[in-house]
């Protein structure tokens, strides 16, 4: 009996049956496949998808165009131009996010002092045109309206304060 014979003997009676038993056990395990378009994947709450710009309960935008999100953004994908309402409230005249450049790190969300920008769970926003990925303020606000409608329908408590913070007017002008 030469080496080949002995090695074959070993592999036939030990190695191969072991391997076969492993694959046979695996045969009855639950497959890990996600049937994606049919069954929606489940996300954790912290999942970072498409952005949205929030509103106060009276419908006005929260964003005050401070530029902190744009400053925090490592991918430099946020562009904004500021304006002021006649009553003196700052807002973003133009607010654009290039979703192709965005790396969905969530730094804008963390930087925002006004709780105005968040990353939602939407992840299916593909398109054949690169221009479609420049999300304007209106699109981002519309995204929020959709999410807000779902929240109201599901009776989930809002996670952020809903009313605009009322600054008290100083009683007397500070002398200067």
């Amino acid at each position: 009996m030469n080496i080949d014979m002995w090695q074959t003997f070993k592999s036939v009676f030990i190695a191969i049956p072991t391997g076969l038993s492993i694959t046979f056990r695996y045969l009855f395990r639950k497959p890990v496949t996600e049937q994606y378009p049919k069954v929606r994947p489940k996300f954790e709450d912290r999942y970072r998808g498409l952005h949205y710009l929030t509103r106060y309960s009276d419908g006005s935008e929260r964003c005050v165009c401070c530029g902190l999100c744009a400053a925090a953004c490592p991918a430099d994908c946020i562009y904004m131009e500021c304006a002021e309402t006649p009553s003196g409230i700052r807002y973003a005249r133009i607010y654009e996010i290039n979703e192709l450049r965005c790396i969905f790190c969530g730094m804008c969300e963390e930087a925002c002092p006004e709780e105005a920008i968040f990353l939602g769970h939407e992840f299916e926003f593909s398109s054949g045109d690169r221009d479609d990925f420049i999300y304007t303020k209106e699109m981002l606000l519309a995204n929020y309206d959709k999410i807000e409608k779902e929240r109201v329908a599901k009776r989930i408590k809002p996670m952020i304060r809903q009313e605009r913070f009322q600054f008290k007017k100083p009683a007397a002008p500070i002398g200067h």
Partner: peptide
């Protein structure tokens, strides 16, 4: 089918 299930697929 069998090979898929051995590999945890459907």
């Amino acid at each position: 089918k069998v090979v898929a299930h051995i590999q945890h697929r459907i």
